[in-house]
Design a protein around this nucleic acid. Structure first.
Lengths: 245, 245
DNA sequence: AGTTGTTAGATTGTCGACAACCTGCTTCTC
DNA sequence: GAGAAGCAGGTTGTCGACAATCTAACAACT
C-alpha cells in the first residue's frame, strides 16, 4: 500500500469559518478598533444563526482581538500606544529566546524555508500589496518561532502577532503612501544563516526597533485625537478573572 | 462628593460563572486530562442551557485548558512531558523579563504585597492545604508579572500559569504525601527586596528548576503507561489556523 | 475469518423564539 | 425649565427543539 501522510481534514463547522472571516476582517482593518459588532446584523449578512457567531466571537475575545462587555456588546479592541509598546518589548524577548532554541536545529530545510518566505515578502513588495506585505513579513519572522519546537512559545508568539498585525494594518491604512520599503530583511536572513548567534539576536532587537518607532509615533498621534463615539467607555484590557477566595 | 474607587460590578452572566466553575474543576484536577466533557450532562447538572455552556467551553479552548474536535467532543488537554518542559523554559524567560521591568518600580507597597502573599503561602503550608498551597505559591510568583506594568506580559504569564497549575495539581493528586515543603520561597522574597537584580533573576531560574525536575519526572512516568481509553486518538495540540492564501 | 454496508443510538452543531437588560425619549411633577 | 418616572425600541443572553455527524453493533458478502 502507498505510505502517504494525509493532512487532517478541514474543519467544516460554520463556527470555524466565521472565526476565520472575522479575524481576517479585524487584522486587515476592515473592522476598525473600538467598533461595535452587532450580532443580528452580522448573522444576517453571513446567513448564519447567532449561536455559531457568538461562539466564534467568544474565541476571538480570548484571542485578544475583541473585548466583551456583558449586555452592552462586543467591540474590536482599541489600540493604545502602551499596548504596542508592551507587545513589542515582549516580542523582543520572545525573538531572542526563539533564536536561541532554533539555532542548533537549523538545517537545509530551515534555510530553504527561510529563503522561500523571504522571497514571498519581496514579491509582495514588488506587487505593492501592502496587506500581503505585512502578512508575509510576519510569516518570515515567525519561522524561528515555528522552528524552535516549543509549542507554548509558538502559541504565545501567534497571539502577539495577531495584535501586531492589526496595529500594522491600521498604520498602513492611515498613511497614504503604501510603504515601498526596500528589502530590509536581507541582513536578518543572512545573520540567521550565519554562525554568530549573538549577532543575530542583537540584530533582531535593533531591526524590530526600526519600524517600531514609526508605528509607536503613529499610535501616540491617534491618542491625541478625541475618543471616537463608538468607544466603550471603560473597556480596558483588564480581564477580570473572578478567582477570589 | 466622596472620591471612592468602586470595584467593577461582577459579571452576572451565566457564561462567566460557568467558565469559572469549569476552570476551577480543571485546575484542581477534578476533571482529569483527556477526559471528555459531555455537554448535555454538564448542562443538566448546572441547570443551564447548552448555549452558555458551549460559549464557556469555547473560551476555555482558547485559554488552552480544553481542546475541541468538531463533531467528536471537547476534552481536557492532556499533559505531555514536552508541554511541561516547554512551558517551564518559556516561564523562565518571562520571569527574567518581569524582574527586569519590575525592578525600578519596586516601592513600599510592592514589598508589603510581597510579604502578604508570602505569608499566604506559609499559612496554606501550615494548613496542609495542598491545593491552596499551589494557588498561593503561583500568586506569589505572579506579583512580579502584575507589577511589571506590561499587560501583554501579564496576560501571557496568566495563560502559562493556568496550565502549570493544572500540571501541579495533577502531580500533587498522584502523590500520596501532600508535599510539606519547607519555606522554599524565603530566599526568593529576600532577593526581590535586595539590590542585586541579576542575582534575583539567576535565583528565579534555579529555584524554579528545583521543583520542576520532580514534576517533569512524574510527567515522563505518566507517558510510560498505556494511553487511557478516554484519550482522543489524534488530538494533538496543533491548532490549525486556516490562514492560507 | 475478514471486510464492507446498514442501521440505531447518542452527541454535537445550528436554528428560531423568548426573556433580560440597556438606552433614549417622552411624560409627568414640581 | 429641571429632574424623576415610565414607556418603547433595540440588543444581548438564554432556552428548547431540530438537523448533521459520529460511533458502535449487527448483517451480508467474498
Amino acid at each position: 500500500m502507498g505510505k502517504l501522510d494525509f493532512a487532517p481534514i478541514a474543519d467544516t463547522t460554520r463556527r470555524a469559518e466565521i472565526v476565520a472571516l472575522l479575524r481576517r476582517a479585524i487584522l486587515t482593518g476592515q473592522l476598525e478598533p473600538g467598533q461595535k459588532l452587532n450580532e443580528l446584523r452580522i448573522a444576517e449578512q453571513m446567513r448564519v444563526s447567532r449561536a455559531p457567531l457568538r461562539e466564534a466571537m467568544r474565541e476571538l475575545v480570548q484571542e485578544g482581538l475583541l473585548t466583551s462587555i456583558p449586555y452592552a456588546g462586543t467591540f474590536v479592541v482599541d489600540v493604545t500606544a502602551k499596548d504596542i509598546d508592551d507587545a513589542y518589548s515582549l516580542n523582543k524577548v520572545l525573538d531572542e529566546f526563539a533564536i536561541e532554541l532554533t539555532w542548533p536545529l537549523r538545517d537545509q530545510r530551515f534555510f530553504d524555508e527561510l529563503d522561500r518566505r523571504h522571497e514571498a515578502v519581496k514579491q509582495a513588495t514588488r506587487d505593492r500589496d501592502t496587506t500581503r506585505q505585512i502578512e508575509t513579513a510576519l510569516q518570515l519572522h515567525g519561522l524561528i518561532h515555528e522552528w524552535a519546537d516549543n509549542s507554548v512559545l509558538l502559541e504565545t508568539w501567534q497571539r502577539l502577532t495577531s495584535r501586531l498585525q492589526m496595529y500594522f494594518a491600521l498604520h498602513q491604512r492611515a498613511r497614504q503612501e503604501p510603504v515601498p520599503a526596500e528589502d530590509i530583511h536581507e541582513t536578518y536572513v543572512q545573520l540567521l544563516k550565519g554562525a554568530d548567534m549573538r549577532a543575530a539576536q542583537r540584530y533582531a532587537r535593533e531591526h524590530i526597533d526600526l519600524d517600531f518607532e514609526e508605528l509607536l509615533a503613529y499610535a501616540r498621534s491617534l491618542e491625541q485625537r478625541a475618543p471616537k463615539g463608538a468607544n466603550p467607555d471603560r473597556a480596558g484590557l483588564t480581564r477580570n478573572r473572578p478567582e477570589g477566595s
